[in-house]
Amino acid sequence: MSDTNQYLRLEVAGHSYLLPSVQRYTIEQRDNLTENLDHASGVAAWRVVRNDRWPAYALDGALRLTRAPAQWQRAVFLEGSPHMVGLIVDDVQLLPRGAVTVTPFTPLGPSPTGEGHLFVNAWVNAGRVTLVFSPPALLGYLRSLGG
């Protein structure tokens, strides 16, 4: 059950997750983004390109919407239709091709998004589990946060 794709390791609120490289993304530093001072909207920052702007959100350890930590430095923007959407991350690392072998994983219970479960695979390494995002589900979830 090996997968030869590469994976992006995302650290969000102290927890590591993997994002398959089939999902196109852009990493933006905080300096290149416009911080949103209206905290009520839930948007931490905007990526502004010409006449468009795309939101970036901060999530807590349970992947619930939260205020961005004061010292945040970067966001990963996921590309997709109709627009891209960003996720504030503590750290991001592109893992070498072949470094990760994922296996299928089914979170029990009802799926939390309209696009299914947030996780559909897992990486088991030395007995530890790192969950692998389903790109459509993650995109759908981030877009559902509004902004």
């Binding site: 059950m1 072998t101 994983f105 089914t106 979170p107 219970g109 897992a122 088991v124 589990v129 969950l131």
Partner: peptide, 14 residues
């Protein structure tokens, strides 16, 4: 009631 997942052999087990 799903309290987490463990790595067991080569798979993640809820």
């Amino acid at each position: 009631w799903l309290i987490g997942a463990i790595g067991w052999r080569t798979v993640a087990v809820p």
